[in-house]
Computed example of a mutant assay.
Amino acid sequence: MDEEKVQLGFPSAIPKGHGWNELIALDGLDLLRKYEETLKILSSQDDLIGTIFTKAHNKIEQPVLLKKVISLIEGENWLSMDGDLKGSIYESILEKNGQDKKSGAGQYFTPRALINTMVEVTNPLITETVCDPACGTGGFLLSAFDHMKTQSKDQEKLRFLRNEALSGNDITPLVVTLASMNLYLHGIGTEHTPIRCQDSLERTPATLVDVVLANPPFGTRPAGSTDISAMRDDLYVTTKNNQLNFLQHIMLMLRNGGRAAVVLPDNVLFEGGAGETICKKLLTDFDLHTILRLPTGIFYAQGVKANVLFFRKGTKTKDVWYYDYRTNIKHTLA
């Protein structure tokens, strides 16, 4: 795509000497060496290109296969292809990979129907900011974008939506790459990527947002992760429970009046000690207006029982609408 833009007179975003033409002109070991050198250079860039190629490395060891892949890519006119079509193709690959238990990618995949439901209930507006602190491949941000872009034809609002309204973090470099590319192909983050490769829990929120949509990772924090209690003093309670820490972080990053939809496993809602303290805070300082009980098997991880919490900051909870979509219901990705 970059080379096609150059042919139309636009400047290249790729460092000189590492463009597409340099690759397609080579064969054999020269191609392999040049490709690996190019990946290293691109991953070091401090811009959208650098994010897309975060920690990228070559997995095609045979030059003839690499040449074949490059030739297949060269045979398409990517710039003339409709943006929605490119995005849809890429997203379908992510979805298929997320449904493949052998690939292990399902841990990053939230079913599209659930994503869209959470977006519709929170109803982000085109003038608002939306964040996913554990964004995976960017499904929530993309759905929010689709929901918001039809609300106005004002060019300044649309520019704000594409380049400033959305943000996300993830700690896995490959996933950051997938998310950045996914959004870019849908016309989001064309000035700079809204995705950062960082641990959301290590930092006090730098800015408050209007809407948070998230499906935080289940289980404990990865081995070697920073002790959250040593990094932050703004959390309501100290705990090693990953889901409770994400819930606290999300509660803190909302503006007054901000809304959130968060997927959490059953045990978080009923855990004593830290869980009880956070739950009281949620009911006192937030309007926890809806809990959606999800069917077993909706996620890749087998046996996970989860709920979606919908809440608004700044108003005390009066009534909770509890929707049971689990009893006698079964959805599975198996």
Rank of each mutant, 00 (worst) to 15 (best):
E3S: 15
K5I: 14
V6E: 15
F10Y: 14
F10M: 13
P15C: 07
H18Q: 11
H18P: 13
L23A: 15
A25C: 06
G28V: 01
L31P: 07
L31C: 14
E37H: 14
L42N: 05
S43C: 14
D46V: 11
F53D: 12
T54K: 13
K59N: 15
E61H: 13
Q62D: 04
P63H: 03
P63K: 02
K67E: 13
K68L: 09
V69C: 14
S71Q: 10
W78N: 07
D84I: 14
S88R: 15
E91V: 04
K96A: 15
D100N: 10
K101Q: 15
K102T: 12
S103L: 03
A105T: 04
F109T: 06
L114V: 01
N116W: 14
M118K: 03
V119N: 12
E120V: 05
V121L: 13
V121A: 10
V121H: 12
T122Q: 07
I126V: 14
D132L: 08
P133H: 09
G138D: 05
F140N: 06
L141E: 14
H147Y: 09
M148R: 02
K149P: 01
T150E: 07
Q151W: 05
S152V: 07
K153D: 10
D154W: 04
L158P: 00
L161R: 05
R162H: 03
L166F: 06
D170V: 05
G187L: 10
I188L: 03
G189C: 10
T190Q: 14
T193L: 10
I195G: 13
I195H: 08
C197A: 11
C197G: 12
A206P: 04
A206M: 11
R221Y: 12
A223K: 07
S225Y: 00
I228P: 03
R232P: 06
D234T: 13
T238I: 08
N241T: 02
N242V: 00
Q243P: 02
F246T: 01
Q248R: 08
Q248L: 05
Q248G: 05
H249A: 00
M253D: 00
R255F: 00
R259M: 08
A260S: 01
V262H: 01
L264W: 01
A274V: 02
A274S: 11
G275W: 03
E276H: 00
E276G: 00
E276M: 00
K280E: 03
T284E: 00
T284G: 00
H289E: 03
I291Y: 04
L294M: 06
T296N: 09
G297T: 06
F299A: 02
A301Q: 06
Q302K: 14
G303N: 10
V304D: 06
K305N: 07
K305P: 05
K305M: 01
A306K: 01
N307G: 09
K313V: 00
K313D: 01
D319S: 07
V320G: 09
V320M: 11
Y323L: 10
D324H: 03
L333M: 14
A334G: 15
